[in-house]
C-alpha cells in the first residue's frame, strides 16, 4: 500500500529513492560480511553457544572482530568480565569513527543520528564516509540508514544461517573470501588517493603506527585507535578547510 502511494507523492518517492541508493551502496559490505558471518555462526556453534545466543550476540553487539574474540574466549573458558573488557578495548575505535561520522552529519537530525550511530562498524563507517555528498542531499538520512540496515541484516542473517546450517560454503572458497573486507577497504581508499595523492600519507602514517605498536606488543584494539588518531592528525596539515570534495 505504501509503495503504490509513494509513486504519486514525489516527497516519499525521493525517500524511497534514497533508501534504494543506500541499499545499493551497502551491497559490497554484504559480500564481505556474509562469509565472515557464516564462519562466526559455525565457530560460535562449535564453542557451545546455542543458535539463539549466537544470533542475539550479532543482533546486540554487531561487531565482527569482537564477536570472534568472544567466541574464542568462551571456548577457552574465560569469564564474562574478561570478555566484556576485551570487547571494549577492541571496539573503542568506533568512538573515534563515530565522532568523525556524526560531525559530518550536521544537517541530519539528532533523532536520526542516534540509531545510525548504533549501527556504526568499520565497514559501515568507511563506506558511509566516502559517500559524502548524500549528507547534504534531501533525505540523506534515508541513504545512510538504509546502507547500515543492509549491512546489519546480512550480518545477523549470516550468523544465524552459519549457526543453523554449519558450513554452507566450501571451506576453500570461504577462506578465500576472508580477503573480501580488506579488498573493500582498498577499493574505498584508492579512488580518494587517485583524486588527491597526498591522502595516501594519512593512510600510510596510520598503517605504520598500527604496525609498530602491534609489533611492540600493544593490543590490536589500542593500536588501531592510535594509528587512526595519529594518521588523522596528519590530515590537519594535509586536508583543505573545505574538505568536502576531498
Amino acid at each position: 500500500m505504501n509503495n503504490t502511494q509513494s509513486i504519486h507523492i514525489p516527497k516519499s518517492e525521493s525517500r524511497l529513492h534514497m533508501a534504494r541508493r543506500g541499499a545499493a551502496a551497502g551491497f559490497p559490505i554484504v559480500l564481505g560480511y556474509l562469509p565472515v558471518a557464516l564462519t562466526y555462526g559455525v565457530l560460535a556453534g562449535q564453542s557451545g553457544m546455542s543458535i539463539s545466543e549466537l544470533t542475539l550476540m550479532s543482533v546486540l553487539v554487531f561487531a565482527g572482530a569482537a564477536q570472534f574474540l568472544a567466541v574464542s574466549m568462551i571456548s577457552a573458558g574465560a569469564g564474562a568480565i574478561e570478555i566484556i573488557i576485551a570487547a571494549f578495548v577492541l571496539n573503542f575505535r568506533h568512538f573515534v569513527m563515530s565522532l568523525s561520522f556524526m560531525n559530518r552529519l550536521k544537517e541530519i537530525t539528532f533523532r536520526a543520528k542516534l540509531p545510525m550511530s548504533l549501527g556504526l562498524t568499520d565497514e559501515t563507517f568507511t563506506m558511509s564516509s566516502l559517500h559524502k555528498k548524500e549528507a547534504k542531499e534531501k533525505y540523506g538520512a534515508y541513504f545512510y540508514a538504509s546502507l547500515i540496515l543492509t549491512a546489519y541484516l546480512s550480518w545477523v542473517g549470516g550468523s544465524f544461517v552459519g549457526g543453523a546450517l554449519g558450513d554452507v560454503i566450501p571451506s576453500r572458497l570461504s577462506e578465500s573470501m576472508g580477503v573480501a573486507l580488506y579488498a573493500m577497504f582498498i577499493g574505498l581508499l584508492i579512488p580518494s588517493v587517485k583524486k588527491h595523492h597526498r591522502i595516501v600519507f594519512i593512510a600510510l602514517i596510520a598503517m605504520t603506527v598500527n604496525f609498530i605498536l602491534q609489533a611492540w606488543g600493544m593490543s590490536e584494539g589500542w593500536s588501531i585507535v592510535a594509528g587512526t588518531l595519529l594518521g588523522g592528525l596528519s590530515g590537519v596539515w594535509i586536508l583543505d578547510d573545505e574538505g568536502e570534495d576531498i
Partner: peptide
Amino acid sequence: LNAIPYAALGA
C-alpha cells in the same frame, strides 16, 4: 575528523 576515514582505512 575529516581525515579519520582515510586513516581508519589505512589502519
